[in-house]
């Protein structure tokens, strides 16, 4: 395992300390590093609290700040945070307008946030994101994973909350954005969980894993490495086939790196995906390219398409001041 670490046990704490020190103008750490919260709180707005396992940086702590989250609860690497973290974060940042939990659809995340909501005093509501089309959508199962589309929900609902939307409006908006957002990921290499010390799975030099999540879970299938266009085609086809998109629809295209893939490749994938989506009649009105929802050091990327309307486009454009997103 080749990582910049001191000890397996210290990774999370040291990295959080670094984040808090590097962005001390924006965020501050809660006691025992249970959460990262905005430095400046606004007690009149709905407080947005997210969280999940670590290893996806900058998600979620990098999205704490004006126009996006109020607090983020980092669990251990790939492990949901515990209810006490969530409860304390909510307590620290909530005012009169209630707390909105933004939760990625994993059994662990859902249960821990659920327990937190049960314990929390004050009004809470929850949005669950589940944008990963690589997973079969079935009512018998837990359903789809929440992956990079979560960023879009956090950004758009974050802007709305900043502009005064109430808790109910935030929930409705978040659910609308989530419903119009789809993602799919491909891994060229596995990630290595520090505590495990070895890659979660092993791919041959000419193999890739299609339909991976963001925790090193195996994907839909393992196939021979393909050209970027072929990969982008499979991903955009799966995404578009699942989105209720009409000709001329405006969309946001997010090309997200998993941590080990450099910008030069992400822009190339963006170029391929954009072309294909435009051929399908979508208008790519907004774009984001970078490593925002990572899977430790995994080489790979995901595509996310989110349909926009006038309101959500304006909310996407609304100013944001966080460690990882600023405009």
């Amino acid at each position: 395992m080749k990582k910049f670490i001191n000890s397996v046990d210290g990774v999370l704490a040291e990295s959080l300390d670094g984040l808090a020190a590097a962005h001390a103008d924006l965020v501050t750490l809660g006691p025992e590093r249970k959460f990262v919260r905005r430095r400046e709180l606004n007690s009149r707005k709905v407080a947005l609290v997210s969280g999940g396992g670590s290893g996806h940086e900058p998600l979620h702590a990098g999205f704490v700040g004006y126009g996006m989250l109020d607090a983020a609860c980092p669990g251990q690497v790939f492990t949901s945070p515990t209810p006490d973290q969530i409860v304390e974060a909510a307590q620290a940042v909530s005012g009169d307008a209630g707390v909105l939990f933004i939760v990625k659809n994993y059994a662990g995340d859902r249960m821990n946030f659920e327990m937190a909501a049960e314990i929390s005093e004050g009004r809470t509501a929850t949005i669950v994101t589940d944008d990963d089309v690589a997973v079969e959508n079935s009512t018998h199962s837990i359903g789809r994973r929440g992956v990079a589309g979560t960023l879009i929900v956090e950004k758009i609902v974050g802007a709305a909350a900043e502009k005064g939307a109430d808790l109910q409006a935030c929930v409705a908006l978040g659910e609308r954005v989530n419903a119009r957002t789809r993602s799919m990921g491909v891994a060229l290499t596995s990630c290595t969980v520090p505590a495990a010390g070895t890659p979660t799975f092993v791919l041959a030099e000419d193999e890739m894993e299609v339909g991976v999540g963001i925790h090193g879970e195996p994907g839909r299938r393992r196939v021979k490495l393909e050209r970027a266009d072929a990969i982008a085609f499979e991903m955009t086809t799966a995404i578009a086939g699942d989105l209720d998109a009409r000709d001329g629809n405006e969309a946001l295209l997010l090309v997200n790196g998993f941590g080990g893939t450099p910008a030069i490749e992400l822009y190339l994938m963006y170029n391929a995906a954009r072309r294909m989506l435009e051929k399908r009649g979508l208008r790519i009105a907004r774009s984001l390219v970078g490593s925002y929802v990572t899977s430790l050091d995994m080489a790979g990327c995901s595509l996310t398409v989110s349909l926009l309307d006038t309101e959500t486009r304006a909310l996407w454009d609304h100013p944001v001041r966080t460690a990882a997103l600023k405009w």
Binding site: G53, G75, S80, T82, P83
Partner: peptide, 11 residues
């Protein structure tokens, strides 16, 4: 509940 996290902690 307060130390495990993940799915197994709440369960």
């Amino acid at each position: 509940v307060m130390t495990v996290g993940g799915a197994s902690g709440p369960l």
